[in-house]
């Protein structure tokens, strides 16, 4: 029997749960059969996936390509560093509690300016704003530490229930933090699934497809784009908040435009026209970059070749390519 392209699409949470269950089980069991370094890498991958997931609400679902998402990731990271330096409590929940409103306010302000434009003008504005933030982080060295950045020690987790000191503190932190990030990652995936399959998410896709048509239906285009920007920036900022305790240090590099490029790369790598693409892209990119850096000093060249190959051979990304392949195989069988 041929697969029917018009078959009903199930967008329920049950479907998401069914699809996620085996992957989630694998991720839960992962620390039992891999070494600490690999757990650390997967944690970085999950954080990159959260950033790409947030970014893709803007690119894949709203049709706006931001070249400045490093600003929100970096603001999240620097907020945590400021909290550590000025306020004191080394609690991850406290970092998140302070960090999320900060990145949300920044996203709301920058988004308000950026969504007044579309296409290349939008991209350039987001890039320009992120470069302003980068310059401030670099020049205000008495606040930000300049190019040396700011150190962030290992925080306590679960309101101080889990502390990490002593000789095995690092290993314990990595494993516990992995589960911590995994839990937040699952919450973010569920949240984003609900958003993109809600009438609000469908309205964003309608705006992406044709804003004039969306306008005469009664959609406030700019308001919708702004909310999308706000959610997108906040989620990417959350990724920055989660990243900095794992990295132990934040520098202006995470605010530089090349870091925005890495977020764009992640979304392209996985495929930005489907829900799981940025998640896969974020994780694969983390491994790709890590092993490219370890293999050759010309790692940027290697990543460039991968990007060119990707655009030419797999324009719909890894997930998009696999979906097409699966569809062809099913057609071939029938």
């Amino acid at each position: 029997m041929k697969p029917d392209p018009n078959a009903p699409r199930d967008h329920s949470l049950a479907r998401l749960a069914a699809a996620m269950a085996p992957v989630l089980l694998l991720l839960i069991l992962l620390p039992t059969f891999v070494e600490t370094y690999q757990i650390q890498l997967v944690t970085y991958g999950l954080i990159a996936a959260i950033a790409a997931l947030g970014f893709n609400l803007l690119l894949g679902y709203t049709g706006l390509l931001s070249f400045g998402h490093s600003a929100y990731f970096g603001l999240g990271a620097y907020t945590v560093a400021f909290v550590v330096q000025r306020l004191g409590p080394h609690s991850m929940e406290f970092y998140i509690l302070i960090g999320i409103p900060v990145v949300a306010i920044a996203s709301a302000l920058f988004g308000y300016v950026c969504v007044r434009h579309t296409r290349i003008f939008f991209g350039i504005l987001t890039l320009a704003i992120s470069q302003v933030v980068y310059s401030l982080a670099l020049k205000l060295y008495w606040v930000t530490g300049g190019s040396d950045g700011l150190r962030v020690p290992r925080p306590a987790l679960l309101l101080g229930l889990l502390n990490f000191s002593g000789p095995r503190g690092f290993q314990q932190f990595i494993t516990s933090y992995y589960y911590y990030v995994l839990a937040i990652f699952v919450v973010c995936v569920v949240l984003m699934w609900v958003v993109v399959h809600s009438p609000f998410g469908k309205a964003l896709q309608a705006i992406r497809d044709n804003e004039v048509r969306a306008r005469f239906l009664g959609l406030r285009i700019r308001r919708f784009r702004w909310i999308s920007f706000l959610v997108s920036g906040t989620l990417t900022g959350l990724a920055g908040i989660l990243w900095v305790p794992l990295n132990g240090l934040t520098t202006p590099d995470v605010l530089y435009w090349t870091f925005s490029g890495e977020i764009v790369f992640s979304a392209l790598l996985g495929g930005f026209r489907n829900f799981t693409g940025p998640i896969v892209g974020g994780i694969v990119f983390t491994y790709l970059k890590t092993y490219a850096v370890a293999t050759t000093e010309y790692w940027q060249l290697l990543l460039g070749v991968v990007l060119v190959t990707l655009v030419l051979v797999l324009p719909t990304g890894i997930v998009g390519g696999l979906s097409t392949l699966g569809l062809r195989l099913r057609k071939g069988r029938s």
Partner: peptide
């Protein structure tokens, strides 16, 4: 336009204006 639509002016344009990547149910859902 969106305020006029909210006041009760419906419009079906010449080129239909259907959102191509959304299902008919999703078009109606909006």
């Amino acid at each position: 336009p969106h305020r006029r639509a909210k006041r009760g002016i419906g419009y079906a344009p010449e080129n239909s204006g259907i959102f191509p990547e959304l299902t008919v149910a999703e078009n109606l859902m909006i």
